[in-house]
């Protein structure tokens, strides 16, 4: 850990505030019976898909610039895609992918 306790409390508080804002805002902005603008409804449909893409890239952000250029990550992601195609189980994909990565970093690279 690089932060002081106060800094980490502030960071967590910022995340809590943002999360609560996303949950409470609709109830504040649109009291029962009001019309919802079409752009809001549209963003609600497309953003979840785009944001997950951003999060995957966010996870790889440091690995891309290392000597291996995220090779273990890419192999493990390919393994997750394979597991997903075969079993369609999120739990299995997450565990399998993580174990694959751990084996690669501990024994191969």
């Amino acid at each position: 850990m690089t932060m002081t306790v106060t800094e980490s409390i502030i960071t967590i508080a910022a995340v809590v505030l943002a999360t609560m804002l996303t949950r409470f805002l609709p109830f504040i902005l649109f009291p029962a019976g009001s019309r919802i603008p079409s752009v809001v409804r549209y963003l609600g449909q497309v953003l979840p898909f785009a944001v997950i893409g951003l999060l995957v890239v966010y996870c790889l952000k440091d690995a891309v610039f290392t000597e291996l250029h995220a090779l273990p990550d890419v192999i493990s992601i390919a393994f997750i895609v394979l597991l997903h195609r075969l079993f369609h189980s999120m739990m299995l994909s997450v565990i399998g992918g993580t174990v694959c990565f751990m084996l690669l970093t501990q024994f191969v690279f």
């Binding site: 850990m1 690089t2 932060m3 800094e7 980490s8 502030i10 960071t11 967590i12 508080a13 910022a14 995340v15 505030l17 943002a18 999360t19 804002l21 996303t22 949950r23 409470f24 805002l25 609709p26 109830f27 649109f30 919802i36 809001v40 409804r41 963003l43 609600g44 449909q45 953003l47 979840p48 944001v51 951003l54 999060l55």
Partner: peptide, 27 residues
């Protein structure tokens, strides 16, 4: 975020973006 350099604004904005889907659950 806790392992990165201190930046509460960044944390707040990332929180908004990642959780934006809640807006639509709320609606």
């Amino acid at each position: 975020l806790l392992l990165a350099p201190f930046s509460p604004l960044h944390a707040f904005l990332l929180g908004l973006m990642v959780n934006a889907r809640h807006l639509f659950y709320g609606i």
